[in-house]
């Protein structure tokens, strides 16, 4: 009885999952072909095949500038998020499930608050300022959004690393700092790489905070947003396609690192 019902509900689950996946994929399947269109406007189905919109992207200093800002902010955000997340994970290591849930919940809070509210708050605080302060604030805000991903990536790997590995390092003659530097960090390095990649793209994809806070600076999502509101050229499709490709590649690379991180520690 139960098995039949379970099989039925699991089939429903699969169907639902497939529908959601399709829903998510359709826009991608539309946008990527459009970026190769020869027309001067966004056309679906695309007409002909050309790489000229990709060329246009790389020849336009505004697009390149936006790409530069996005990469810069994303690297800085990841450089903040990963060490902060590692500290949080070290604190949570070996703590009871209740403590872990409370802290992770608090970290996730920043994501549950609609980004637009977060963005509005940041805008109101930073409005009087120009120069580097908004950049710093946006970077920190992106780092905050990335933090739970870092903790969720690093914590399970850290928990898998037997404490006796670090104890063994101490018995070999390592001070606590040496044990952390030479053993703990390298032992979980693949997870750190994965966390860095995820953090980078959390920031790289983020529109709302950057849009509200920056007055003169454009990041890639901000530039796409601005372009969409003015004229719909296939350059947007080209930019978006590259964003999609980069994000997908990053998820795969990041995930591969995480899998490697735990498989290396798995069989002890």
């Amino acid at each position: 009885m139960t098995t039949i019902r379970e099989a039925g509900s699991s089939r429903m689950l699969h169907l639902g999952f497939a529908l959601i996946l399709l829903f998510l994929l359709v826009p991608l399947l539309v946008i990527i072909p459009m970026s190769f269109s020869e027309t001067r406007y966004l056309a679906f189905p695309p007409v002909g095949f050309s790489l000229k919109w990709y060329g246009a992207f790389f020849q336009n200093p505004r697009w390149i500038g936006a790409l530069g800002w996005s990469v810069g902010v994303a690297i800085c955000a990841a450089l903040v998020a990963v060490p902060a997340g590692v500290c949080a994970a070290l604190y949570l290591r070996h703590r009871s499930g209740a403590v872990v849930n409370v802290v992770l919940g608090a970290l996730l809070g920043a994501q549950i608050v609609p980004t637009i509210i977060l963005a509005l708050g940041i805008r109101l605080v930073t409005a009087p300022f120009t120069g580097s302060l908004p950049v710093v604030v946006v970077t920190l805000a992106h780092a905050t959004l990335a933090l739970p991903f870092v903790v969720a990536t690093v914590l399970p790997v850290l928990n898998k690393l037997d404490v006796s590995v670090e104890k063994a390092a101490r018995m070999c003659g390592a001070t606590p700092v040496q044990a952390f530097r030479h053993i703990t960090i390298p032992a979980i390095r693949p997870a750190l790489v994965g966390a860095f990649v995820f953090s980078f793209f959390v920031s790289f994809d983020e529109l709302m905070i950057a849009l509200f806070t920056f007055q003169t600076i454009e990041t890639l999502p901000v530039r796409i947003w601005g372009e969409v509101r003015q004229e719909l050229t296939p350059v947007i499709a080209a930019a978006t396609s590259m964003l999609i490709a980069a994000t997908t590649a990053a998820v795969i690379v990041g995930q591969a690192h995480i899998v490697r991180a735990s498989s290396r520690l798995a069989d002890k």
């Binding site: 037997d162 590995v165 063994a168 018995m171 003659g173 001070t175 053993i183 390298p186 032992a187 002890k268």
Partner: peptide, 16 residues
């Protein structure tokens, strides 16, 4: 680390 004592653990504890 200052005691100069060697130790073998149950789970081997090799540096992965």
């Amino acid at each position: 680390e200052k005691r100069e004592i060697g130790m073998v653990f149950q789970g081997y504890s090799l540096f992965p």
